[in-house]
Design a protein around this nucleic acid. Sequence first.
DNA 1: GTCTATATTTCGATAGAC
DNA 2: GTCTATCGAAATATAGAC
Lengths: 203, 203
Amino acid sequence: MRSKEAATFTQAARREQMIQATIETVAEVGFHKASLARIAERMGIAKGGIIYHFSSRDELIRAALQEVFDRLTRHMLEQVERAVSLREAVWIYVVTLVGYLDAHRDEVRLISEGFAATQNAESAEEQVQTRWSGLADILDQAVAETGRPGVDTKVLAITVSGGIDALVGEALRDPGFDLRAAGERLAEMVDHLIEPEGEFPDE
Amino acid sequence: MRSKEAATFTQAARREQMIQATIETVAEVGFHKASLARIAERMGIAKGGIIYHFSSRDELIRAALQEVFDRLTRHMLEQVERAVSLREAVWIYVVTLVGYLDAHRDEVRLISEGFAATQNAESAEEQVQTRWSGLADILDQAVAETGRPGVDTKVLAITVSGGIDALVGEALRDPGFDLRAAGERLAEMVDHLIEPEGEFPDE
DNA sequence: GTCTATATTTCGATAGAC
DNA sequence: GTCTATCGAAATATAGAC
């Protein structure tokens, strides 16, 4: 019992290390260049050692994706629930997401390239939906509140989500690009699209 | 002279066939799964046959990217120059781009995944810039014309470009998604962001 | 239980057949 | 001039060492 718990604990810790090594390797060399050999090399072991903990590379990638997705979701929920209005929730959503991606650039390539690779391949339809459906939900309520029903919230949610990816990609490419400022400009635009009239929120 | 021209012609035709096979293979299995073997198999030859016409896989990919990029650019220029105002040019740009991607879904994955792969790798800074800088130019002029200088045209151009990618991705995933309609909704939103007051264009 | 060493497949690219 | 047959590197996954 005691030893079993300890074994499970160390095993979980080892898996976590390997997931972290995967995130870092993908950030460094890109998704499809992040082979088991490179990830194992970063840990100072042979590639078979990873296969022991994860039965295949696909499963390792899936686990790493799940991890970064959970981290991001947790952070987003924490921040968005602080909003005092739905309109503000939209604003916070955009700024928080951009801010998170700006602060955790290691995870960015895994999120974008990894999602793209898995969504085209097999399952992951859940995650893909989830990608923008959270924003769509908030937008739906916010639009109902502000009373501008002319906006297609699904199209706006997809566009903003993809737009944020593109902004982050630009930031990775051009170190001089101010990503957080871009996020605020984008939030302003979205707000303008769903606002009742012409005024901006309290900032 | 005669025979040399003929040889050059058949060679160019063969290259065109191979580029087309590359586009189709990428559309089918994705960018990083589109190996020389798969592309050659589609043509009924061995992979070395491709290497004869293109000295490496990279060069084949580059040629295919150039081809789809040229096709797209040609079509965009033809349509956008029909606009009678800059504001309408923005509208046409968005609707035309979405419409083209809707009508040429084979080329979509090569455009998105291929661009992403090459831009992260090496040169191609030109193409990346070009991706949204065309829209940024039009937006700049349109905003100057309509007199709403509060909009950050660079951020808007990047966001809209990435947003269109995301809409196309959604359409590939969900066959029931009306991509052209989504493009028009997006065009409306962009127009609303750059419009002087509240009216819409003539449609 | 954990990892190293090895087997197998698949990649892009060279060399040679026709 | 055009392609097939083959090579060496690198990928993942298995089998065996400790």
